[in-house]
Computed example of a mutant assay.
Amino acid sequence: MMTLIILLLALAGLLIVARRESGARHAIGVMVVTGVLSLIFASGWLALVLFAGAALTAAAGLPGFRRSWLTPRVFAMFKKVAPKVSDTEKVALEAGTVGWDGQLFTGRPDWHNLLVNRYTGLTEEEQSFVDNQCTQAIAQCNAWDLAVERADLPKEVWELLKKEKFFGMIIPKEYGGLGFSAKAQTAVLQKLAANEMLMVTVGVPNSLGPGELLVKYGTDEQKDYYLPRLGG
């Protein structure tokens, strides 16, 4: 009977801690106190369970203990079985920059910086492209026809995409492309997402294609030769 009472006390205490979000220390305190009571007045197995729960909570819930003892050991274990990062992967991981969203992982983001960098919207040219050319392309696509009957885009859609330079959004205007901003490219793909095949067809050349690499790292000769062909 006493074992049941102590068990109920432990459960009630843990529920109160969880309800109030009091943290790991209070949960450990509840389990240690009820464990001692169980050891004195009730059964040893319940005390063992409560002490084990307190130890696990301390290992996982106390930041100082977790960082100094648990995390290094778990990390070392996974490091032995995890595949090694190749040189190419290292370059990719170390490339680029981190925007404001990276501050979220610090636990102390600068909210003022977020408010200062407000969304500026699209230019008139970019918005017009989304409203007109994108709408025209979507109107010529039928999801069932493309996915089941054709397994391809209609010829007139291919011609429209080429004529309106959908594949050259990332190519600068001086090389015959549209020179759209990243926001505009996102807006275009969001609009074209009404048809999955159409969106993917336009999205791949503007993201995985060679255009951006040539713009940033190509020689003048490479840019003059390839970019007009990609942009047009």
Rank of each mutant, 00 (worst) to 15 (best):
M1G: 13
L7A: 14
G13N: 09
R25F: 12
H26K: 06
H26T: 14
V30P: 12
V30Q: 03
V32K: 05
G35C: 06
A42C: 08
L46I: 11
V49L: 13
G53V: 08
A54N: 09
A58P: 08
A59F: 14
G61R: 08
G61V: 11
R67G: 07
L70N: 11
T71N: 12
F75I: 14
A76R: 13
P83F: 06
K84E: 15
K84G: 13
K90V: 07
L93Y: 15
A95E: 13
G96H: 13
T97W: 07
P109K: 06
V116Q: 12
Y119F: 15
L122N: 05
E126C: 01
S128C: 02
F129S: 07
V130T: 07
T135H: 02
T135S: 11
A137C: 09
I138V: 15
C141L: 12
A143N: 12
W144Y: 14
D145P: 04
A147V: 08
A147N: 12
A151Y: 07
D152Y: 01
L153A: 05
P154Q: 11
P154V: 12
L160W: 10
K162V: 04
K162N: 08
F167S: 03
I170H: 01
I171W: 02
P172V: 10
K173H: 01
G176H: 07
G177E: 07
F180Q: 04
L189S: 01
L198T: 04
T201S: 12
V204Y: 14
P205H: 11
P210M: 06
G218P: 00
G218A: 05
E221K: 13
L227S: 06
P228A: 04
R229Y: 00
